[in-house]
Design a protein around this nucleic acid. Structure first.
Length: 477
RNA sequence: UGAGGUGUAGCGCAGUUUGGUAGCGCGCUUGGUUAGGGACCAAGAGGUCGCGUGUUCAAGUCACGUCACCUCAACCA
């Protein structure tokens, strides 16, 4: 036990020092390392493997929904950035700009994209001429740069990886529908791939994207009760179409502006995963995104037949379609157990002389920390399949239970403050005015995350007037 | 941008008060014994003490300057 405690002490306490726990976990499990430039991170193979799975799963869904991939340039002429008034105001403070190249000062400074609405708007302006050209529904996987003051691996870095989808439609209705469809798309992804419950809904004016008419968000509740925006969709109306001359001739021969929308989800999803499911021992990865779903740890691996049996099991499970790893390094079994638990592998199989002799399968579940040897080695494929399924469902259920328990209602500012201080999402009425929203922020350091679709509150939590909306307030990352 | 903190071996740190041989733990290399919850023994390798200037016979240690990173607030996927 003493040794076990020693191991645990390598990671900060998850309950009392969550920020440090997070930093410890991402670095010690080799997901990331800090880059030499402030706010940059290196995504190491184990972390990048998670991103690749997220990409593959999401990309497959995009393509099924009819979205096409493309790639637009990293550098954007500064003049593009200023074409949409609100957009430039919102992003100017965090744009990095290239002023010199080839040893000379550039005629026009070039923005390193913080997001690509402008350059894609510019290209769409060239490509759209007729109603027959619409809709355009493109997505790109890329990096973007936002010069943030405070940074944290995955949650907020100067440069991050994401996908950004940009569509243009002939009608407002179609663009608005796509905006809501994509919100549901993200939600489905969060639930089924990340095993992560989320709240989705419309953002307030204050929280909406610079240049959008409406922004919708997907918020996930982290282990400490704070909220993390994990995906957003934006309806731009004709704002960007007018700024970039995205015009087409309709069926009646009339010149019309298109309606645009965009949506994005980033490597922040990995941060969300870690903070949603992690525990005192480190990462807990849901089977659908785990780069290693099953690790086979040989016991007494130098004894005759052990490694052979492990290799055979490895091949069987690989053939069955699982992501499996055999750890045949020289480390002791105990060391491997702890290491792979810290790295969040959902299922571990311990295979030693005893198991080979008896034909039993010894498995350890990361989510419940339970070890059993009641399964048959010959049925390994079926057992693994069943357990991975159960683990995913259990992780979702646990996270959903926690989220539901931590949504509380408030009718006064004091109640709201008490709620968010205890790490809850607070559901409360809001009259809709900016002053009251600002007051919540000032009083409780909490922001309006999303509007509740089931509007139930009667009065505004701040001013007591009639509530126009019911809002989920929370402290956020 | 405000407030605090830290820079010494790959990692974590001690040493700085009172200037005088560069240390500890882990990790790493080699060999051996081990093996069902972070094994043990032995022998090794590894350092411009963040950077610069100064004081001094002598600076990791003192002075001044500078840079970087981390944490917390304000701003943000």
């Amino acid at each position: 036990m003493a040794k076990d405690n020693q191991f645990v002490s390598q990671i900060a306490d998850i309950e009392t020092d969550f920020p440090q726990w997070y930093t410890d976990v991402v670095v010690k499990t080799k997901l990331v390392d800090y880059g030499p430039v402030k706010g940059t991170m290196v995504i190491r193979p184990y972390g990048y493997a998670i991103w690749e799975i997220i990409q593959n799963e999401m990309d497959r869904r995009f393509k099924a929904a009819g979205v096409e991939n493309a790639y637009f340039p990293l550098l954007i002429p500064m003049s593009f950035m200023t074409k949409e008034a609100e957009h430039v105001e919102g992003f100017a403070p965090e744009v990095a700009v290239v002023t010199h190249a080839g040893g000379e000062k550039l005629q026009e400074p070039l923005a390193i994209r913080p997001t690509s609405e402008t350059i894609i708007g510019h290209m769409y302006g060239k490509w759209v001429e007729s109603w027959r050209d619409l809709p355009l529904r493109y997505n790109q996987w890329c990096n973007v740069m936002r010069w943030e003051k405070t940074t944290r691996p995955f949650l907020r870095t100067s440069e991050f990886l994401w996908q950004e989808g940009h569509s243009v439609f002939a009608s407002a209705e179609e663009a608005e529908k796509e905006t809501l469809d994509m919100l549901r798309f993200y939600e489905e992804f969060a639930v089924n791939v990340l095993c992560m419950p989320v709240l989705t809904g419309k953002k307030t004016e204050k929280e909406k994207f610079a240049g959008a008419l409406a922004t919708y968000g997907m918020e996930a509740m982290m282990h400490d009760g704070k909220s993390l925006q994990s995906g957003t969709t934006h309806y731009m109306g004709q704002n960007f179409a007018k700024a970039f001359d995205i015009q087409f001739t309709d069926k009646n021969g009339t010149l019309q502006y298109g309606y645009t929308m965009s949506y994005g989800a980033s490597t922040r999803l990995i941060g969300a995963l870690i903070m949603t499911h992690g525990d005192q021992r480190g990462l807990v990865l849901p089977p659908p995104v785990a780069p290693v779903q099953v690790v086979i740890v040989p016991v007494a691996q130098k004894k005759e037949g052990v490694l052979d049996a492990c290799g055979e099991l490895l091949k069987r499970l690989q053939r069955a379609g699982f992501r499996v790893k055999l750890d045949d390094t020289d480390n002791s079994p105990g060391w491997k157990f702890n290491e792979w638990e810290m790295k969040g592998v959902p299922l571990r199989i311990e295979l030693g002389p005893r198991d080979i002799e008896s034909g039993k399968l010894t498995v350890f579940r990361r989510d419940t920390l339970e070890k059993t040897d009641g399964y048959s080695l010959s049925e390994a494929e079926t057992v693994v399949s069943k357990l991975l399924q159960e683990i995913g469902e259990n992780l979702y259920a646990k996270a959903e239970k926690r989220m539901k328990e931590r949504i509380v209602d408030a009718e006064t500012l004091d109640e709201l403050l008490e709620g968010v201080s205890k790490g809850n999402f607070v559901r409360a009425g809001w009259c809709g005015c900016r002053a009251c929203e600002d007051r919540v922020k000032e009083f409780a350091q909490a922001t309006a995350r999303v509007l509740d679709k089931n509007h139930t509150a009667k009065i505004c939590v701040v001013c007591g007037k009639k509530a126009e909306h019911t809002v989920f307030f929370a402290r956020a990352y």
